[in-house]
C-alpha cells in the first residue's frame, strides 16, 4: 500500500496546477523511491515529467509499484479544499479503486477526508535520452513567464538564441515584431534574480509560445527556471522543487 505524508499540501497543489492544462488524465507512478509522472499532451508536441522523491514526504511508505490513474480536473477539485499549509496524507491500497486524501490544518484541530475514484490509464512511457545540451540558461521564473506572455501577444512562435553572454527571445507577427535580450549577470544579494548561461556552442531554436506560456504555470514551484537547448532536439524547461522537479520537454519547429 501507499502512505505518503506531505508537510505542505501546497506542493501537490502547485504541481497539479502546473500540469493540468497540458494533460488531463495521467498515472502517478508510486514506488519505494517516490511518486513520478510522465505524460504527453494530446498533440504529442510536449511532454511533462514530474518527480517527487520519497525524501519530500515524512513518513513515506510504498512497498510495491502502484499506478494511480487520475483525472487531473477531479484532483484539482479535491485539492481546492486544502490550504497550502495543510498537512496532506495520501493513501491507496495495492490495487486501488480510489485514492484517499486527508488534509489537516497546522493546529491539528481540523481534518478533511476525500476519496477520489481512480481510472485505468494505458500510458506509454517514453525513453528520454541523456542529452549534453549546447546551452543551459537559468533565469528568474517570473521573468521567463513575463517574456513568454508578452511575446505571445505578437506571435505564435519565439526564437530563442543563446550566446556566450546573453540569451535573446524574439518573435515576429502580423502587427510587428519584438525581442527581449537578457544579459548574463549575477545578483549577489538576490541570487534568484541572476541570469546565468553555460554555453558549449551558440544555439538558435524556434518554439511554440502557446506551450511555453502553459509551462510557465509552474512558476509558483520555483523562483528560477532552467532552459536547456541543443539544435534540433526538444527544449527542456525545468522547475526544481525541494525534493523533486517538474520538467517540460517541447519539440522544436524546424525548417523554413
Amino acid at each position: 500500500m501507499l502512505e505518503a505524508r506531505l508537510e505542505q499540501a501546497g506542493v501537490l497543489k502547485k504541481v497539479v496546477e502546473a500540469i493540468k492544462d497540458l494533460v488531463q488524465d495521467c498515472n502517478f507512478d508510486c514506488n519505494d523511491s517516490g511518486i513520478a509522472l510522465q505524460a504527453m499532451d494530446n498533440s504529442h508536441v510536449a511532454l511533462v515529467s514530474m518527480s517527487l522523491s520519497h525524501e519530500g514526504f515524512s513518513p513515506y511508505r510504498c512497498d510495491r509499484n502502484i499506478a494511480l490513474g487520475i483525472n487531473l480536473n477531479s484532483l484539482t477539485k479535491v485539492l481546492r479544499a486544502a490550504q497550502n499549509e495543510d498537512i496532506l496524507t495520501l493513501k491507496a491500497a495495492d490495487s486501488p479503486d480510489s485514492l484517499n486524501l486527508v488534509f489537516e490544518n497546522t493546529e491539528r484541530d481540523r481534518s478533511s477526508e476525500y476519496d477520489i475514484k481512480l481510472m485505468d490509464i494505458d500510458q506509454e512511457h517514453l525513453g528520454i535520452p541523456d542529452t549534453d545540451y549546447s546551452a543551459t540558461v537559468v533565469l528568474p521564473s517570473a521573468e521567463f513567464q513575463r517574456i513568454c506572455r508578452d511575446l505571445s501577444q505578437l506571435s505564435e512562435s519565439v526564437t530563442i538564441e543563446a550566446s556566450k553572454s546573453s540569451v535573446k527571445f524574439s518573435c515576429s507577427g502580423d502587427i510587428g515584431n519584438g525581442s527581449v535580450n537578457l544579459r548574463q549577470h549575477q545578483d549577489l544579494e538576490k541570487p534568484d534574480q541572476s541570469t546565468s548561461i553555460e554555453l558549449v556552442e551558440p544555439v538558435s531554436l524556434t518554439f511554440s509560445l502557446k506551450y511555453l506560456v502553459n509551462f510557465c504555470k509552474a512558476s509558483a514551484l520555483s523562483p528560477t527556471v532552467k532552459l536547456s537547448l541543443s539544435t534540433d532536439v526538444p527544449l527542456l524547461v525545468e522547475y526544481k522543487m525541494e525534493a523533486g522537479y517538474v520538467r517540460f520537454y517541447l519539440a522544436p519547429k524546424i525548417g523554413d
Partner: peptide, 14 residues
C-alpha cells in the same frame, strides 16, 4: 513556415 515537430520523433517509444 516552420513545421512543428512532435516529441515522438525524438524520444523512444517502448
Amino acid at each position: 513556415g516552420r513545421k512543428q515537430q512532435t516529441i515522438l520523433s525524438f524520444f523512444k517509444q517502448p
